[in-house]
Computed example of a mutant assay.
Amino acid sequence: MNPQARSAEQDRAAGGIQRRAVNLGDGNFARASIALKVYPKTRRIRAYLRWSDQGRTRTRYVGEVDQPTRAANLAQAWRKAQTDQLVTTEPLPEGSWASSPAVRRSMTGNRGRDTKPELRLRSALHRRGLRYRVSVRPEEQLRRTADVVFVRSQVAVFVDGCYWHGCPEHHRPSSKNTAFWRQKIDGNRIRDAETTSALEAAGWTVVRVWEHEDADEAARRIAGIVRSKS
């Protein structure tokens, strides 16, 4: 089953796309899915709710299901998740979802990690002999995940998308839901600045790389910083 078919299957079972939302707080939501796990020895089927938060997959046990078909088991699991308030059953705020199918596909395809710019940068860093951790929190108490982290030298690298983070060279405002998207991008900029300040206060050097930057040039800059702190 391809990703579009799997998503449509989850939408049907949940009773609509807006009934699949996990509230992350601060006005942010993640789209969840139900995973079914079959235990052959007992023939029991357990359902788990899964969603992505800060590039990490979160899982929560929903309960056992006992219907004769996969579709019926998914529907039973979603009803239980909604009854137990594991997902929101209230309409989301106006503008929280994409304004058109094309925008929705774009948002769905926006990956939280392992994007092409990240992979290019990591390859360039690796060629320079640097080793690092990927998609981790530099400071565990801060809910901020850096794309590349050099733990020993305390250097945190963020690869920022031009649209989502408001690149001064390439960002172009949306022509639909203008107020919502302006608020969203401005919020991302504020969050980026707060992240940088908090990490610097904790002793980290923060490097931000725009997705349009040349990966080799960015890697050269990062390598110089890392080696100067080693």
Rank of each mutant, 00 (worst) to 15 (best):
S175I: 13
R50F: 08
Q154N: 13
P117W: 03
R120L: 13
W78R: 09
L130D: 01
N188F: 11
N28A: 11
E139Y: 02
Q76P: 06
W210R: 07
P40N: 06
R31L: 13
R104I: 01
G224I: 07
K37P: 00
V206H: 05
A14M: 10
I222A: 02
P138L: 09
K229A: 04
W97R: 15
D160N: 15
A71R: 11
F150M: 08
H171G: 07
R113D: 00
Q183D: 15
Q4N: 08
L199D: 08
M1V: 09
R19G: 02
C162Q: 08
R220H: 05
H165P: 07
S123L: 02
R113C: 02
Q67G: 09
Q82A: 13
I185A: 09
A21H: 06
T57N: 08
R189E: 06
G55H: 08
R131Y: 04
A193E: 14
P168H: 10
A219Y: 03
N23F: 06
W210M: 04
V136G: 00
A21K: 10
A98L: 04
Q154R: 15
T115F: 02
D53I: 04
S100H: 10
R220W: 01
C167Q: 08
T178F: 07
S52Y: 15
Y132V: 04
V157T: 14
D26G: 00
G15Q: 05
P40D: 04
S123V: 00
M107C: 07
I225W: 06
E200L: 02
Q10V: 09
D26H: 15
P93D: 11
R58H: 13
H212V: 04
G27C: 08
R189D: 00
R221D: 01
A102E: 15
K37A: 12
V103Q: 14
E140N: 10
G15W: 06
E211M: 03
R172Q: 12
R43G: 02
G55W: 10
K80P: 00
I190F: 05
E213P: 03
V103N: 08
F150G: 09
P101V: 04
L119P: 00
T196F: 00
H171E: 06
F29T: 09
V151A: 12
R111Q: 12
V87Y: 10
Q4A: 15
L24V: 07
R120Y: 04
R127T: 01
T57Q: 14
R111P: 00
